[in-house]
């Protein structure tokens, strides 16, 4: 048989998470043959695994089952991956680049004796091994790296591949988990929803004016308040801004903040890190103001202004005053 690729299935409250199907598409392309696609599905017991496995497009689903895998733990999941990898004889292991995948990957990689490639936005297999493209230097560059060793371990960024809906008549196999709950060094106590103060409704906003570190300091944010007022919108922010306390956390847009889908998104002094971009991908029209012509935000914008936001914004506010 040709190449064998193992995918770690991630589950959320509703079943197998969407990103798993994206990874299955990546795996099918790398394996070149549906018979080479395997899934590692950690679960508390065989019933739970079998229920979750239903309908997954893969050749074989390996339910790694045991009470140690009833909840997520990095060491438990790393062990499950290693067990499934051995059983599948996988040449390549793909994990989602999520708080589960990036957490587990280095533990699994440490045991394989080579680093993983994280945050992959492109994968291709050559005679030499797996080539991975990924973002580096805050998205300013694309890094390409070769993983010559087997198995090659990579975490894959959300949205890199389309979801695979069908393919492969999955068979299901149970692997009793080798570790017991008392062997684990980490234990999940609880998962909490972070309450938001709810002062603004970012997801519903038609216009979002977003502040980044490039705004220089909280003293300059009234420029954005004025603009947001004039456009009937709200002020959002990058993580750099909320971390620094210029604006409260509930204004943060991105993978660890709000997801917005306004008619107009105006990014001011925001570099365009991938974790920010995923929160504003749904915007219909994106304008970016940034003094660095190479800022990645321009790759995600419709219209860009290369310049100092502290000069452009007062002029813009003035022009709007004149226009109405």
């Amino acid at each position: 048989m040709s190449r064998r690729v193992l995918v770690l299935a991630e589950r959320d409250g509703r079943g197998v998470a969407e990103i798993t199907f994206e990874l299955l598409e990546a795996a099918a392309r790398l394996a070149e043959d549906p018979s080479g696609v395997f899934v590692a599905l950690p679960a508390a017991d065989a019933d739970e695994a079998e229920a979750a496995a239903d309908g997954l497009p893969a050749a074989e689903i390996l339910g790694v089952c045991g009470p140690a895998l009833a909840a997520y733990s990095a060491d438990g999941y790393a062990e499950a991956i290693l067990q499934a990898r051995e059983a599948a004889g996988a040449h390549c292991v793909l994990l989602p680049h999520t708080s589960i995948g990036w957490d587990t990957a280095p533990l699994a990689a440490a045991r394989s004796g080579a680093a993983a490639a994280t945050g992959a936005t492109g994968l291709r297999w050559t005679d030499e091994g797996l080539f991975v493209s990924r973002k580096a230097f805050s998205g300013k560059f694309v890094q390409e790296v070769l993983l010559p060793g087997l198995p090659a371990v990579a975490t894959v960024e959300r949205g890199t591949f389309p979801a695979r809906i069908s393919g492969g008549a999955a068979s299901f196999r149970v692997l009793p988990c080798r570790v017991r709950p008392e062997d684990l060094r980490s234990r999940l106590l609880e998962v909490r929803e972070v309450e938001s103060a709810g002062e603004v409704d970012l997801p519903a906003a038609e216009v979002v004016v977003a502040a980044g570190r490039g705004m220089g300091g909280p003293e300059n944010l009234p420029l954005l308040e004025e603009l947001a007022q004039a456009l009937g919108g709200v002020v959002g922010a990058s993580r750099a801004v909320t971390d620094a306390g210029w604006l409260p956390h509930d204004r943060q847009i991105g993978s660890s903040g709000a997801t917005v889908s306004p008619k107009l998104y105006l990014a001011c002094g925001i570099s365009g890190a991938i974790q920010h971009l995923v929160g504003m991908r749904g915007a219909r029209f994106v304008v970016a103001i940034n003094k660095d012509p190479d800022a990645p935000i321009f790759g995600a914008a419709d219209l860009g202004v290369v310049g100092d936001a502290l000069e452009v914004l007062p002029a813009l506010n003035e022009a709007i005053r004149k226009a109405r």
């Binding site: 004796g113 080579a114 680093a115 490639a117 973002k135 580096a136 230097f137 998205g139 300013k140 560059f141 694309v142 890094q143 390409e144 790296v145 070769l146 993983l147 010559p148 060793g149 994106v286 970016a288 012509p293 190479d294 990645p296 321009f298 790759g299 914008a301 419709d302 219209l303 860009g304 202004v305 290369v306």
Partner: peptide, 20 residues
């Protein structure tokens, strides 16, 4: 284990129209 690392500029064909 990670070899042949290279860097390039991201593809900007789909990027913004720039106002000057």
């Amino acid at each position: 284990g990670l070899r042949r690392l290279t860097l390039r500029r991201p593809d900007r064909s789909a990027g913004a129209e720039i106002l000057e």
